[in-house]
């Protein structure tokens, strides 16, 4: 009775909402630096969807998350920057879904090592693409606002890398353990 399409739409929507929630919950933020820099968990639900539904689900969940952020808490300094950061960056997180199939197979056959390898690869790929989009947005931003001759790529890399790298490590560990402890979560009920 349940056509998969409706379930897909609802699930992606609810997980995008979960991403916003995990972004909002302040006491869940993680102290990594003594100064109080925090890393958000928002990417985790997006990766969960990506590994469950594959690349299409991941991209869609990421896209929704981006739009939700744009609606609730926008930071816009330039049209191109807004498009890159809100339209593209989070959508690209869904690229992790490329590895959905091998992850499921490894999990089913109890191959622990290859399972964690594929999870890491997937999360890394998603984070890498998101990072590149932010990097580009940063360059657009500085190209518009900083004087000529500044090492804009360097600024953008340092700034975006400083939160993307810890977020990548955190997401890999949590996503990896969630499916490992509860393998049924990765299966789509029919």
């Amino acid at each position: 009775m349940n056509s998969k399409r409706t379930l897909f739409l609802i699930e992606v929507a609810i997980f995008a909402a979960l991403a916003i929630v995990l972004d909002l919950v302040p006491f869940l933020s993680f102290k990594i630096w003594a100064q109080g820099g925090s890393v958000s968990f928002a990417m985790i639900p997006i990766f969960i969807v990506a590994f469950r539904w594959g690349i299409k689900g991941g991209l869609l969940a990421g896209f929704l998350f981006g739009i939700l952020q744009l609606i609730t808490n926008p930071f816009i300094v330039h049209i191109a920057q807004a498009f890159l950061e809100y339209g593209l960056a989070f959508t690209l997180l869904g690229m992790a879904g490329i590895f959905a199939k091998p992850v499921k197979e490894a999990l089913q056959n109890g191959k622990r090592r290859s399972y964690f390898t594929y999870i890491t690869l997937g999360v890394f790929l998603g984070c890498l693409f998101r990072f590149l989009a932010h990097l580009l947005a940063g360059v657009v931003f500085f190209a518009e606002y900083a004087p000529e001759g500044q090492p804009v790529w360097l600024y953008s890399t340092i700034y975006n890398g400083s939160y993307m790298l810890p977020a990548f490590i955190l997401s890999t560990i949590v996503v990896g353990f969630v499916f490992y402890k509860q393998p049924r979560l990765i299966k789509i009920s029919s």
């Binding site: 992606v12 995008a16 909402a17 979960l18 909002l24 929704l64």
Partner: peptide
């Protein structure tokens, strides 16, 4: 999907 997301944010919180 957007409206569903927005609708469920308080519940999920």
């Amino acid at each position: 999907m957007l409206s569903i997301s927005l609708r469920f944010v308080p519940n999920l919180l």
